[in-house]
Structure formats: structure tokens, C-alpha cells
């Protein structure tokens, strides 16, 4: 099997999910410069709602695709309403408060949503019912499943749709104008409250689909899944340049690739027995094909974070970002 190609395929799959989630962070940040910590939880709730619907319908005679679609269709409005409520109830009253206040509220909302989900769905993960025949295709020595193909295609479609919306429609222009300058956009007749609410709702809608994709890829949904997914997607948004829509997409895919390749190769690279110098020191361990692996694939979740730090140190504005960190 070709490990490199396989990891690229896997990376593209998770990367497209990160990209879609990152869009939610970056759109909100672009408009009101707030890190909506609770976005990851919204994504998680999307997955939970969809899984519940899919599980309920799994016994019926409906075709599998219709069942999955029903799950997604239930999750989208649920998340959109949640996104709207988040903005309306938690963040809007704090729009003119000191910077720390909405951030603290965001982290509080994240904890509240996570534990409400725990109350609603319990501590155990929900499993994706075995209703779809997940066919696996071989390409060039690697394997790609139909779920992976669906995730990548659907993500690309959503990104294209959002780009069209933001760059080609009147409302999209209003969003970009508000991101540029709230006050001037207001003077030009843009209703800032509506635009801000819309970024939350759109982000949440995209997040709902991302949650379902992520859950079906790994086969489970869990009330804690939003935390690390959110952290990674945020890192992706920063990597691409926070506030920049194309940047979020690029950042998501790149992060997915780095993570997959990192996870695939870190064990080999940090096996001290494979390095001539250190091999000499560890003759005991390395004899008979033994190994001395410093960091194995269980460090998967570390890569996103390391990347975030590196970006912040060397290029805080991100790959495509132009805005500087602080305005005078």
C-alpha cells in the first residue's frame, strides 16, 4: 500500500471538514473580531441531531441515502437556530463591552452547550448505523471510500456555494462591507445586526453539515467531539489568515494534510533506531529490529496546535491574511 498517497487522501478528507468548520470561525471573526468558541459545540450538536434522526429512521424501509439526507436536513435548521440564539442572547448584549467579556461568554457558552448535549445524549458516543454500503475503491496503491469521496465533494460544493454567495450576491457584499468597517457599512444602509446574525447562522448551517461528515467519517459522534474539532478548525482559520474566507479553506485543507502526514510519519521519523547516530547509543533497544519511538501516532492532536503556534510566531496574519494584529 502506498502510505503517502493514503495519508494524502485521509488528510484531504479531514481537511475539507476542517475547512468548512473554519469558515464559521472566520466569517464571525471577520465581522465582529470575536472567536466564537462555541462554534465547535454547534458542530457537535449538528452531528448529534443528525445521528439521532438517522438512528431513528434506520429501521424503516426508506433508502439509505434518504435517511442520511433526512438527518442532515434536521441538523441544519437546528444548528442555524442555535447559531442565531448564541449571537442574539449571548454575544449581542456584549458588543460594546471590553474585549475580554465576549471571549469569556463564548467559553461559558461552549461549556453550557457541551453539557446540555451530555444531558440530552448521554456520556456514550452515538454510533453511525450501518445502513450505507461504504464501498472502497483502490487508486494507485491507496484506498478511498465512498464516504471520503462524498465528504470531499460536498465540502468543495459548500465552499464554492459560500464563495459565490459572499462575492456575487448583494447580501454577500453587505457582509464584506461590514467586515471592512461596521460604521461605514451602516452609513451605506447595511443593517449590521442582520449581517452579524447572518454570519452566525450561515456558519452554523455549514457547521451542521461538517459535523455530520466528521461523525460519519469516524463512525461516531460524541458530546466532546466539538472541542478538538473546533480547536483544529480555528487553527486552520488562523493558518489561512483569520477573517479571510479563501484562507479558511486553504488553511483547513493544509492542516488536514499536515496532520495526516504528521501522524503517518512521526513514528518513523522519531524512531531513534532509524537514525545512525542515536542507533549507536541505543544498541540494547535497537537490536533485532527493535525500535525506540519518541512520538507515535497518538500525538495526532498535537500537530494542529504546533502549527498554530508556528503560524503565530512567524506569520501572525496567516497565509492569505493582510490585516495586522493590532490597530492603533
Amino acid at each position: 500500500m502506498d502510505i503517502l498517497l493514503q495519508q494524502i487522501i485521509n488528510g484531504l478528507t479531514t481537511g475539507s471538514v476542517y475547512a468548512v468548520v473554519a469558515l464559521g470561525y472566520t466569517m464571525v471573526y471577520g465581522v465582529i473580531q470575536l472567536i466564537n468558541f462555541a462554534h465547535g459545540e454547534v458542530v457537535m450538536i449538528g452531528a448529534m441531531v443528525a445521528f439521532s434522526v438517522i438512528t431513528a429512521l434506520a429501521g424503516s424501509s426508506l433508502p439509505p441515502l434518504v435517511i442520511v439526507l433526512a438527518g442532515v436536513i434536521a441538523a441544519i435548521p437546528a444548528c442555524m437556530i442555535m447559531g442565531y440564539l448564541l449571537e442574539r442572547v449571548a454575544y449581542r448584549p456584549l458588543r460594546h463591552a471590553p474585549r475580554l467579556a465576549p471571549l469569556i461568554t463564548a467559553i461559558g457558552m461552549s461549556i453550557i452547550l457541551q453539557h446540555l448535549a451530555l444531558l440530552a445524549w448521554g456520556r456514550n458516543p452515538l454510533a453511525f448505523p450501518q445502513i450505507i454500503d461504504n464501498r472502497v475503491f483502490g487508486i494507485g496503491g491507496a484506498a478511498i471510500s465512498s464516504v471520503q469521496i462524498a465528504i470531499i465533494l460536498l465540502s468543495l460544493a459548500m465552499m464554492a456555494g459560500l464563495s459565490w454567495f459572499v462575492y456575487r450576491t448583494r447580501f454577500g457584499i453587505a457582509i464584506r462591507a461590514t467586515a471592512e468597517n461596521v460604521h461605514i457599512a451602516g452609513l451605506m444602509g447595511v443593517n449590521a445586526n442582520r449581517v452579524i446574525a447572518a454570519t452566525f447562522v450561515i456558519g452554523a448551517g455549514l457547521g451542521a453539515v461538517a459535523g455530520v461528515m466528521y461523525g460519519s467519517y469516524y463512525g461516531i459522534a460524541h458530546y466532546t467531539m466539538g472541542f478538538s474539532l473546533g480547536l483544529k478548525a480555528f487553527s486552520a482559520a488562523v493558518l489561512g489568515g483569520i477573517g479571510n474566507i479563501a484562507g479558511a479553506m486553504l488553511g483547513g485543507i493544509l492542516l488536514g494534510l499536515v496532520e495526516a502526514l504528521g501522524t503517518g510519519y512521526v513514528g518513523e521519523l522519531t524512531d531513534l533506531c532509524s537514525w545512525p547516530i542515536t542507533n549507536g547509543w541505543l544498541t540494547g533497544q535497537c537490536a533485532d529490529g527493535g525500535n525506540f519511538v519518541l512520538f507515535g501516532s497518538n500525538y495526532q492532536d498535537v500537530f494542529a496546535f504546533l502549527m498554530l503556534i508556528l503560524v503565530l510566531v512567524f506569520r501572525p496574519s496567516g497565509l492569505l491574511g493582510e490585516r495586522v494584529s493590532e490597530r492603533a
Binding site: R99, F234, S325
Partner: peptide, 26 residues
Amino acid sequence: TLRLRGDYLAIVTLGFGEIVRIFMNN
């Protein structure tokens, strides 16, 4: 991170907490 805006610090510390836990685990 401290020369950047405050929200980056928040998310980086959040990640750092996770990383420390992952290292302790592994």
C-alpha cells in the same frame, strides 16, 4: 503569543492545556 492580540493567547493557552494532557497521557 503575548505580542499578539488577547484572543490568540486565549486559544493558544486552551490548546496548550490539551497538549500538556496529551503528553502526560503518552
